[in-house]
C-alpha cells in the first residue's frame, strides 16, 4: 500500500477553483485601490495604497442605502411569496389524491420551459395598468411562485411518514393545524435553504427589473451597477467593483451560514 503518488487531477481542479475565485478576489482588491493603482499594480492582490475613497465616492453619487433597501424589499417579497405558494402546493400534492393531479404536476414542470420573453409584454402591460412601474412590488408580483421550489418541497414532504399524518387525522386535528404545526416544522431545514436560494437569485435579478424599473430612485443594486459599466471602455473599474463588493456581501454571508443546506437543496432539485 505504498503507492501514494500525487494525483495530478488535483492540479486541474485547483486551476478551476482559481478561475472561479480569483476574479472575485481581484474585484474586492480593486475596490480598495485608487484608479491609478488599479492600472499600475494591476496584478497585485494587495492594494499598495489601500483606500475607501471608492466607497465614499459611490455614496455621493448614488443612494446606497436606498438601492440596498429596494433590492432587499424585492428579494424578501419574492422569497416569502415563493415559499408560501410552494409549501401550499407541495402539501396539496403530498396529502391528497385528486383528479388531474398528473396533469397539474406536468404543468408545473412545463413552467420551467416557458421563456420569459413570451410573458414579458403582457406582464409589462399588467404592471403598467396596476401603476406599479418604477416600484419593486411590480417586479415581485409576477414571480411569486416557482416550480423548482414546489418540487424540492414535494420531495422533502414525501419523506414524512404517512403514519404521522394519519395519526393526526385520527386525533381529529384540523388540516390547517397539521400543515402549520406538523409539516412546516419538519420542513424547516429545506424551507431555510430554498428560501436562501430564492433570496439570492432575486437579489441578483436583472432582466425583469430593467423592464419595470426605469426611474433611478426605484433601482435595485444590479441596475445601479449596470450604469457604472460602459461598453466603450470608459468604465471606472474601482468604482464599479466597489459597488459589486457591496452587492456580494449579503449572498456571501447567507452562503457562509447555510452552505451545507443550500448545497443539499440544490442536489435535491436535480434528483429525479
Amino acid at each position: 500500500m505504498f503507492k501514494r503518488k500525487v494525483n495530478l487531477w488535483h492540479v486541474l481542479l485547483i486551476l478551476i477553483v482559481l478561475m472561479a475565485i480569483l476574479p472575485i478576489l481581484f474585484m474586492i482588491s480593486n475596490s480598495f485601490k485608487t484608479l491609478q493603482d488599479s492600472y499600475s499594480s494591476m496584478l497585485s492582490l494587495i492594494p499598495k495604497n489601500p483606500t475607501i475613497d471608492n466607497f465614499l465616492t459611490l455614496n455621493r453619487q448614488v443612494n446606497l442605502l436606498g438601492l440596498t433597501w429596494n433590492t432587499f424589499l424585492m428579494a424578501t417579497i419574492v422569497t416569502l411569496g415563493k415559499l408560501l405558494t410552494g409549501l401550499l402546493t407541495a402539501y396539496a400534492f403530498r396529502s391528497y389524491q385528486f383528479r388531474g393531479k398528473m396533469l397539474i404536476y406536468l404543468l408545473f414542470v412545463a413552467t420551467i420551459f416557458v421563456p420569459f420573453t413570451i410573458v414579458m409584454i403582457p406582464n409589462y402591460l399588467v404592471i403598467a395598468k396596476l401603476d406599479l412601474l418604477n416600484n419593486v412590488v411590480g417586479v415581485a408580483l409576477p414571480q411569486l411562485c416557482d416550480a423548482t421550489g414546489i418540487m424540492i418541497f414535494l420531495k422533502t414532504m414525501e419523506k414524512i411518514p404517512n403514519s404521522l399524518i394519519d395519526a393526526a387525522h385520527i386525533d381529529q386535528i384540523p388540516n390547517r393545524k397539521i400543515f402549520f404545526n406538523i409539516v412546516i416544522p419538519i420542513l424547516k431545514p429545506s424551507i431555510v435553504s430554498v428560501g436562501a436560494i430564492f433570496f439570492i437569485n432575486s437579489w441578483n435579478e436583472y432582466v425583469w427589473p430593467t423592464l419595470i424599473l426605469k426611474d433611478k430612485g426605484s433601482f435595485t443594486l444590479p441596475l445601479a451597477l449596470q450604469n457604472y459599466i460602459s461598453s466603450e471602455g470608459g468604465t471606472n473599474f474601482p468604482l464599479a467593483m466597489a459597488l459589486s463588493t457591496i452587492m456580494i456581501i449579503l449572498p456571501l454571508l447567507i452562503y457562509l451560514i447555510f452552505q451545507k443546506y443550500i448545497l443539499n437543496s440544490i442536489s435535491n432539485s436535480g434528483l429525479k
Partner: peptide, 19 residues
C-alpha cells in the same frame, strides 16, 4: 468552492470579465 460564483449576479460577472 466551485459553487461560489453562482451566488453572484451576472451583472457582476459581466463587469469583472470586461475588466
Amino acid at each position: 468552492l466551485f459553487f461560489i460564483p453562482s451566488l453572484f449576479s451576472l451583472v457582476v460577472g459581466a463587469m469583472i470579465f470586461t475588466w
